[in-house]
Design a protein around this nucleic acid. Structure first.
Lengths: 108, 108
DNA sequence: CTCTTTGCTACAATTATCGTAGCAATACGC
DNA sequence: GCGTATTGCTACGATAATTGTAGCAAAGAG
């Protein structure tokens, strides 16, 4: 019995478990995912504007995250205004918007 | 003017920006952070129980995350019951609890 | 045409994460 | 006592993700 080629893990980890929350937690748990959603919360941003907003994160990861978030249906690339939240993405964003107030109280 | 020794970035990225939300998003955006909080949402777990709940993630990362989450004040290590959410951690957890319902509707 | 901005990619270097094994400490039953 | 099982935690090399810098082609403005 040889090792199977294993079709090279793609997409979101945990999406096979049948528990969507796990897939979602995994996707949001990747670096810059939450930040990207956060920065898009108010207005669309161009790829470069988004990079500036994200403290000059490397375009490689940002591109990867944007692709994932687009595939997930949270983000879309508009004609002129750049990247923007979809209605679904906006909904998701509002879901963890209370984090803002929590963070203020947290403060470390 | 020589380059300052730069006290070697420790703790949470973005905590210097004065925007706690950035620090929080960074901390929660590390792998297994959200998952750990999620798995502790109902009952405390031992380190090994937590590992089992987290799909056998490597103990190295889990330990790192647990240390970070403890330092952040979200998790504590009890005498007998293992790892548990602090009141603050429970509050944080409830903040993104609506994600569950959202994920169900999302489904991919 | 030139100049700028767009979304996006190549590439090597650095980190983070994984997976396995194992430690010391504590608590059990015997 | 003795073995054994569980706890929190760590070492280590291998693998994958992320970084930082540079640059591309396409589209638009002047």
């Amino acid at each position: 019995m040889t090792k199977q080629p294993m079709p090279k893990q793609r997409g979101v980890r945990g999406s096979r478990t049948g528990r969507p929350i796990m897939a979602l937690l995994d996707l949001l748990g990747r670096r810059w995912s939450l930040r990207i959603l956060w920065e898009l919360r108010e207005a669309p941003l161009t790829s470069r504007g988004l990079r500036a907003a994200c403290d000059e994160a490397s375009p490689t990861v940002l591109q990867t995250r944007l692709d994932e978030l687009r595939e997930a249906g949270f983000v879309e690339l508009g004609e002129a205004s750049g990247y923007a939240l979809t209605p679904l993405g906006r909904e998701l964003c509002e879901t963890f918007m209370p984090l803002h107030r929590f963070a203020e109280r947290w403060r470390k």
